[in-house]
Nucleic acid binder design. Structure first.
Lengths: 197, 197
DNA sequence: CATTTATTAGAACGATCGGTCAGTATAATT
DNA sequence: AATTATACTGACCGATCGTTCTAATAAATG
């Protein structure tokens, strides 16, 4: 078998991407081999390299998709929130359910890779911070509308980002989704209480 | 050259350990090769494997040293602190200066390693959480002494640990040590303000 | 001084890595 | 129908991985 229709080819590409994403999430970037991706996707080595010119590029492709999706979902949630406070809870909820997003871990690990193309590294580092501007916006809005006390918005944004990022990285081995959500909500509770006007 | 005195042999071991530690911190576990460690330490392959039976064991050795050192320094700082509040600032200060400690990142990455000995993985995962009990103690003390409001201490400890861990993982590319410290202090400010009795 | 033993060096190992390539089959185009 | 472009296969590549092994050297031991 060879030469599928354009549509089928796209399916192949997505099958590879899906398998790769799952493996990168489970094992990280370096621990995942192209051979594993081949096996898991059911496609051949050649097919993978036909659709993606390298492991790095495949990883970047996934990160970009992920980022777009994340931002879209987040802005969708924002439409339902009327106050900055509500928006922060929305972001936290988003992070808590972000078992689909932990590519962030893999991307942080990636930076250390030896032979990696510096250009790709830079892009990935930059990309890993994509939620920051969104958070900054909300905090600036909250301060402007007197929901939050006057303070350095950049610092607060970085802090909240670290909180949520940190929560996402913790090993929640024995915790249920409920408990995880609960801790994320608690994080926002404490954070809000700490910065309230 | 061969066969040094016991003292010199220990120096060799520590030179290897020091080189390995720096590389693990800079590049992560998997991205660091034994060949790099050999080159950086100036020792031979044989010497490395004479002192450490495997890469995994070398890594574990570093983690254990690191943990002991961390806990010692932290309890030393605690002696200077009279209130739970002060102790929290001490912990934050400790995390902020923990450019020597980010083995935590490497250990989190390690868990994903493929062929890794499950026993070693378990030990490492467990070890990566070592600051938690310390934090929990301080928070329980703070609640008991009415410094902090009544609340679930476990949840708060996990939250603070996530905050500090998250701050430690953020890419502070363009930030000075001053700014990093400042953000860590801010983290405690907000956290304390959020849980204050 | 002779022997043993601890410590180092470095060549070599099999396994696996990311990546390439010649070849094939079929859809699309002419 | 003939040709071209696309989608895919799987064997293969050199490099590098963690690890092992043999030999050499010198401290320790008697």
């Amino acid at each position: 078998m060879a030469r599928r229709t354009a549509e089928e080819a796209e399916q192949t590409k997505q099958a590879i991407a899906a398998a790769a994403k799952q493996l990168f999430i489970q094992q990280g970037y370096q621990a995942t081999s192209m051979e594993q991706i081949r096996e898991s996707s059911g496609m051949s080595k050649g097919s993978i390299y036909y659709h993606f010119k390298s492991k790095e590029q495949l990883f970047m492709y996934l990160l970009e998709l992920n980022m777009v999706d994340w931002i879209y979902k987040c802005t969708e949630r924002f439409k339902l929130a009327s106050t900055a406070t509500e928006k922060l809870y929305a972001i936290a909820h988003h992070f808590a359910h972000d078992f689909e997003n932990p590519l962030m871990q893999a991307s942080m690990e990636f930076s250390g890779t030896k032979g990696a193309d510096p250009e790709v590294i830079e892009k990935i580092v930059e990309m890993s911070k994509f939620p920051l501007p969104l958070i900054l916006d909300v905090i600036q809005e909250g301060i402007k509308l007197k929901e939050f006390a006057e303070d350095d918005p950049e610092k607060l944004a970085l802090l909240l980002y670290s909180i949520l990022g940190g929560l996402g990285i913790i090993q929640f081995d024995n915790y249920s989704l409920e408990e995880i959500e609960s801790i994320h909500r608690k994080a926002i509770d404490v954070f809000l209480n700490g910065i309230r006007a």
